[in-house]
Structures are given as C-alpha cells and as structure tokens.
Simulated scan of single mutants.
Amino acid sequence: MRAAGKRFAGGRSHGDSRVDQFIEQIITGLSIGSILLLVAMGLSIIYGSMGIINLAHGEFVMLGAYTAWLLQSHFGLGLLASLVPIFIVVAAVGWIIERYVLSLLNNRPLDTILATWGVGIMLQQSVRLMVGSELRYVQMPPSLSDSTDVLGFSVSSYRVFLFFVAIALFAVTWLLMNRTTVGMKLRAIMQDRSVAASFGINAKRVYALTFAYGAGLAGLAGALVSPLKSVSPDMGTGYVVDAFMVVVLGGVQSLAGTVASAFFLGELSGAIAFLQNDTVAKAIVLLAIVVLIRFRPEGLFATRVRT
C-alpha cells in the first residue's frame, strides 16, 4: 500500500527530496499500521486472555465486511451508521461459537485449533451459499472520500480516519480491560482460574463475553477496510496471517505491545515496499519475525505476571 499522493513543489534540492520521501514513508507506514492494528486487536484479546489460537478470526473480519455491504445495499445504511450494528452482529456470532463450541474444549488446545479452523470454513461456505462468491463493494463515506493535507502531503481522509479510529478503539479496549469489573475478572481468571472461581467469578461467562468482544472488533475491522478492498468470502485469510504476526511479535498478553508491533510492522512493510515491492516486503517481514521469535519467543513486549 502506497501513500495517497505526494507534495507538489518545484525546484527542490536533492536533500529536500529525500526528506519528503522519508516523511511520505512514515505516513504510509502509519496507514498500514492502523489497518494491522484494527485487525489484530481482537485477536490479541482472544489469544492473550483466553489462550485460544482462533483460526476463524479472518472469517470474523469477512463477516464484518459482508454485514457492511448488506446494510448498505439492502437497507441504505452508510458505513459510519452501520458500525454499531456490525459490532453487535459479529459479536453475537462470536458469543454463540464460544458458548456452544469452544467452551466444550477447555484445556484442549489442539482440538480448539481444529474447531476454529472448521468454524472458519463453515462461515466461508455459508456466505458463498447465501450471497455467492462474486466480489462485493462497500462505498466509502462521502465525507471522507477526499484528501487532506498532512505535513504538506495529500493523504486520503479515510486513511487518516482509520488511524484515529484504531487509536480510539485501543483506548476503549485498554480501559475495558484495566478499569472495569469484567476486565478485573478476566485478569483474575488468567492468573488462577480456580481461585477466581472460589470468589464467585463465572469463568465461562467472562470468556464468552471476551470472545464476543474480540469477534466484534474483528467485524469492525472488516467493515472499516471494506471500502479499500473488495469484499469476498476468502478476504480474511490474508488478514489473519498478518494479525498473528502482530500479536506474536508484540507479546501475546500485551495490548500495548500489539499497538507497537502493528505500527512497527507497518513502517517496516512500507519502507521495504517502497524500495522493492509488496511481495518482497511481506516475505522479508515474515523472515524477520521468524528470526526474532527464535531468539525472543515471548515477543518484544512480554507482560510479566506474578505467580
């Protein structure tokens, strides 16, 4: 992904041109990083808090995009007006899956991986059967379809909007996890489930709400990126790979690490793509993560928990 336009100026020196290119790549990296953060945040909560490797996360992203398309094409709702209903719909799907599938597989990580993989395939095929495999398109909000000036560069207003939405969702999620009763109960369960249960904390209920919230965030991510990419049943496959890279690099129990790694990978991908191309950028980024995890398996921002 490239930044939306460059600054037009005549007679600039070679040094000024390099500075312009550097600033442009920073903006490009922030744009890529905000999308990575939107997709990875829900996975970070589910993986870090519940220990579930959710291979259906990409399908939650896909469901959010299709829900945005459905509300826009059949009910006339614009994207911005659809965000709350989209979150509720995808969160409800996530709650049902956790309550009636994953909760039956406690302490069986391999079975959980297979179950989420199977759920993902079922969701993909269900969408194909109901609406077909044709590409769908979601209209960008008219108020955000123009460009805005950022440090003298013409940048898509919608990409700026995505950046601030990603930061706002992180702030809301951090407050939910660290300043609410549900977050306190979840942290207690993570540290010692049996002790938490002795204090009357219903682990199944907290896990169901956590999984639903993570799924809802994935649905929002899918809806928000749908104007930038055509909507298809398999659109989530690529996103889930990127999301796992972000979460593993940031540390599975560190929400702040997810933010840092998303923007770090965004800047790295943007810089390499500028010098080579998107395919080379993804390959080099994946190789760098593999090497880093080899020497630091807990990620860059591991959270220390008292035992």
Score class of each variant (00 low, 15 high):
Gln125Pro: 08
Leu268Pro: 01
Thr116Asp: 04
Gly257Lys: 07
Arg179Thr: 05
Trp117Asp: 06
Thr148Pro: 03
Asn178Lys: 00
Met177Trp: 00
Ile32Gln: 11
Pro233Val: 05
Val90Gly: 04
Leu63Arg: 05
Leu151Pro: 01
Gly15Cys: 14
Val131Cys: 09
Asp278Asn: 15
Gln72Trp: 06
Phe199Ile: 11
Gly94Pro: 14
Tyr137Lys: 10
Arg205Ile: 10
Leu287Arg: 07
Ser198Trp: 01
Ala208Val: 11
Ser31Phe: 00
Arg187His: 03
Phe274Glu: 01
Leu70Cys: 11
Leu123Pro: 06
Gly219Phe: 02
Met184Ser: 15
Val155Arg: 07
Ala166Thr: 07
Val119His: 01
Ile284Tyr: 05
Ser13Gly: 13
Arg108Met: 07
Pro233Thr: 07
Met41Trp: 03
Leu80Trp: 02
Asp111Arg: 09
Gly118Cys: 09
Ile272Lys: 13
Pro85Ile: 10
Leu71Arg: 04
Ile32Lys: 05
Arg108Ala: 09
Val305Asn: 03
Gln139Glu: 11
Asp20Ala: 12
Tyr213Leu: 04
Glu134Tyr: 08
Val246Ile: 12
Ala215Pro: 15
Ser254Asn: 12
Asp278Arg: 14
Ile27Ser: 06
Asn107Val: 12
Leu209Gln: 09
Leu55Trp: 05
Pro85Lys: 00
Met1Gly: 15
Phe170Arg: 11
Gly299Trp: 12
His74Glu: 15
Ser145Phe: 08
Leu169Asp: 01
Leu268Ser: 14
Thr180Asp: 00
Leu129Pro: 00
Thr28Asn: 08
Arg304Ile: 13
Tyr47Ala: 07
Glu59Ala: 12
Leu83Asn: 00
Arg2Cys: 12
Trp117Gln: 08
Val252Ile: 15
Asn178Met: 00
Asp149Gly: 01
Ala9Tyr: 01
Val101Asp: 08
Ile86Thr: 00
Ala260Ile: 15
Gly214Met: 03
Thr258Met: 03
Leu37Tyr: 10
Ile284Ser: 09
Val182Tyr: 01
Ser232Phe: 14
Gly257Glu: 12
Ser82Met: 05
Phe75His: 10
Ile289Ala: 13
Gln21Phe: 14
Leu292Met: 15
Tyr47Thr: 01
Met41Asp: 11
Val165Tyr: 00
Gly48Thr: 11
Val160Phe: 06
Ala65Ile: 10
Phe8Cys: 02
Ser254Tyr: 03
Thr28Met: 08
Ile52Val: 10
Val291Glu: 03
Gly257Thr: 05
Ala91Cys: 06
Ala91Ser: 00
Ala81Met: 09
Ala208Tyr: 06
Ala65Tyr: 10
Asn107Tyr: 07
Gly222Ser: 04
Leu224Gly: 10
Phe163Gly: 03
Glu59Pro: 00
Ala40Asp: 11
Ala288Thr: 14
Gln21Gly: 14
Gly266Asn: 12
Val90Arg: 08
Ala196Tyr: 08
Leu268Tyr: 07
Val165Gly: 05
Ala166Leu: 08
Ile27Phe: 00
Ile23Asn: 02
Gln21Arg: 14
Ser34Tyr: 02
